[in-house]
Amino acid sequence: MKRNLYQPINGGIVDIIEESSTIKSFVVELEEAFNFETGQFVELTLPGVGEAPFTPSSSPYDTKKMEITIMKAGKMTGLLHECEKGQKIGIRGPYGNGYPIDEFIGKDVYIISEGIGLASIRSLFLTLVDRISEFKSVVCRFSAKTPEDFIYKNNLFDSWQKIEGVDIQLTIEEANGTWDGNIGVVTTILSPDDVDISNAVAVVCGPPIMMKFGTLKLLEFGFSPEQIYLSMEKNMCCGVGKCGHCMMGKYYVCKDGPVFTYEQVKGHPEIWD
């Protein structure tokens, strides 16, 4: 028998990691095997409260546990932030498409992200790192408001920087006493020399305004719209192309996305809103 589309898989929160004052990572374990591709999203149910879409931040190769990094932004995420270890949850999905990793093989992968955008980027990053020899390089340009606002600090400031084939640069938006790196929005640390544009793909994920200016910068550098991948955040509800909530022009973001090339979406008026 076919599975009921709307039935969540039961699970529970087994660990909670405080990433910043407004962001926490929840480690969840499910009662059934669960596989996803990096870039796909899930619907997380808080029993009796509601559901919301999130992109897992852990590697898809880790099939035992899944991590979901959540920023306090509304009612549901606020309640999630109050949850403790042992809280029961439900998961539906995975939904949508993932990043076409195989198309990245042999290329420079240029990743641009800001703030909570790093949550889903972490999953992509871990996936790439797992098979790092297949890519020419993984070049990351990340920003946050202040150093404290960076999520995954331990990895970001240290262990990830040491991985061979990986080049990470960070910037913060507000001057801060201890920070000796760049200050300015993420586009201020992008350079056309970061990657070999003729053999690169770019991934942009973060708040809409940053995605817009990041994309424009990449185009200015000479990236073609097909080379730029965007992960769109829309109001995903059913996840299966029926309820209509996630529609962006003709696309059901839940099914046709959430990952799109800029080429696919550039004509649509609603992409940056």
């Binding site: 709307y6 029993p47 009796g48 509601g50 029926k242 309820c243 209509g244 909530h245």
Partner: peptide
């Protein structure tokens, strides 16, 4: 055929409800 999904709490179980939107 737009709809939304919402959750409710019953005595000892929960429900997901699909409603026209």
């Amino acid at each position: 055929h737009c709809f939304y999904l919402y959750d409710t709490k019953q005595e000892d179980y929960f429900t997901k409800i699909k409603m026209w939107d």
